[in-house]
Design a protein around this nucleic acid. Structure first.
Lengths: 129, 129
DNA sequence: TATAGGGCTTCCAGTAACTGGAAGGTCAAG
DNA sequence: CTTGACCTTCCAGTTACTGGAAGCCCTATA
């Protein structure tokens, strides 16, 4: 299978697939003409990667997950540990964003948004020095 | 004032302050010895930038905010528009993260996390191909 | 058979916002 | 006069791609 077929079937951009090979996540075979020749297994791994990325796992975590995925003697505890660590990061990020959102939405609500210069948003940014 | 004093008083890293000068956010004077010499105004702008960044505004938005801040004939509507756009981005990000969190936390809950290989997390990643 | 197109290849550069480190000038204290 | 803490600039690396250039390969059609 050529790269654009794989892109169609996985939903990943062609560029991303090449990139994943560059950084060693996959190692598709090559045809005589130099074209990448993807197996069903490559396809599965790429789909796996796409899904893991869509859940926000970083590339390093994806690498580990893929290794565990391909290791039939893995312990599910190792997978869970990775997922929990990632969940903690997400929760951390959520807390930050919610904090930002609260502050910002309050400021937006109190700004008249007219042609006058007075602005509680700028006042806040300037005051918290 | 030298750069490390400014860093202390704004909470920004020295490197970040130099970076902000590089990209034209501030233009501190120079002493005879070549050292940056920060005015109170520079200090205010840096504090302003620090606060804006902490609310998640990107550098470009910060640049606009700083311009508005220094423009006494601004319209608060322009500030509000920037803030609302940023708020929309935050809400978008929050929606994505909450979605990730829900999926991931469900998967984590259903994973035994023992020394057996069976793992619903990997199963999910593999299935959604 | 020549050629036009589309797909494939590699490599280089750019993105956001810093951060780390190297090489070297400056200043105050002892 | 030396030591150590500052300061300077410049270069490289970070994350996960993405865009673009230059050029080979393959197929179909005139």
């Amino acid at each position: 299978m050529n790269i654009s077929d794989v892109a169609d079937r996985t939903g990943l951009p062609v560029k991303t697939i090449r990139y994943y090979e560059d950084i060693g996540l996959i190692s598709p075979a090559r045809s005589a003409n130099g074209y990448r020749s993807f197996s069903e297994s490559d396809l599965h791994m790429l789909a796996f990667l796409g899904r893991a990325r869509s859940l926000g796992f970083g590339i390093d975590a994806c690498r580990s997950l893929l290794r565990l995925y391909n290791d039939k003697s893995r312990a599910s505890a190792d997978v869970k540990k990775l997922a929990q660590a990632h969940l903690a990061e997400i929760d951390q990020k959520l807390a930050e964003l919610n904090q930002m959102r609260d502050t910002l939405s309050h400021l937006v609500d109190t700004c008249a948004g007219n042609d006058r210069p007075d602005c509680p948003i700028l006042a806040d940014l300037a005051s918290q020095a």
